[in-house]
Design a protein around this nucleic acid. Sequence first.
DNA 1: GAAACTGGTTACTTTAAGGTACCTACTTGC
DNA 2: GCAAGTAGGTACCTTAAAGTAACCAGTTTC
Lengths: 119, 119
Amino acid sequence: MNSAAPPLNLQTYSAMDCPVHGLVTILSGPWTTYILWLLRQRGPMRFGQLKKQMPAISAKVLTERLRLLEQTGILDRHQEATIPPKVTYSLTGRGQELHGALDALDALALKWSGRTAWA
Amino acid sequence: MNSAAPPLNLQTYSAMDCPVHGLVTILSGPWTTYILWLLRQRGPMRFGQLKKQMPAISAKVLTERLRLLEQTGILDRHQEATIPPKVTYSLTGRGQELHGALDALDALALKWSGRTAWA
DNA sequence: GAAACTGGTTACTTTAAGGTACCTACTTGC
DNA sequence: GCAAGTAGGTACCTTAAAGTAACCAGTTTC
């Protein structure tokens, strides 16, 4: 993070001089932290399983979120060579690392909201 | 963070069941981490000073970001009873706490981007 | 031959967010 | 009397993001 003004749109996050902004921007996409939470709680999940947990999201947006997380190395996408296709998403090592930092934010969020820690 | 699906728009972050999502969503607004970084580096700043550091942002959006950060208790807004008005923004205790967690994300972002830590 | 399955893709429409230009308040200086 | 100062507010326009509906591939089942 330096004094250069950060770029404004999501597509340039990888080129910007402020890596934390890029990472935060990735994480803030609607549903992203929820996807990460689900995969942490339940382990690897298929596209359809994720979709069922989030009926209010369109398949198009879910695909975009998953692709972004895959491209940034936070999720792993594994497709079996079957018809119909069978794709499983799981957290990478980076995804696991990320949870340490997210837990810190989560702890602050919970502390500030006056809630007890979630089980 | 529980299994309930998080709401989608920024305005409901305070009501959602996933506090970390709300916090991350707040932080991801364009320029937000930059504002926080500026205030941390330089101490309290006036609206016009902030604006000068970010010529590409409109006064309208800067105002919205600052208001949001004030409403969530991350920034303090102090207005002197003068004409013309003189408003100074500064980090609250929460804002200071937040930087611990942001530093963890920053460290991950830098590690992943293969960059040396910023001075 | 049609339906179902899965994980998408795509063109078009709708909605949300941001930008722009103008405006506000009151005091001071000229 | 007008301009300047500061920190905004607001209506309207533009742009970006999301939603929708139809579609795709190939195999299996009936």
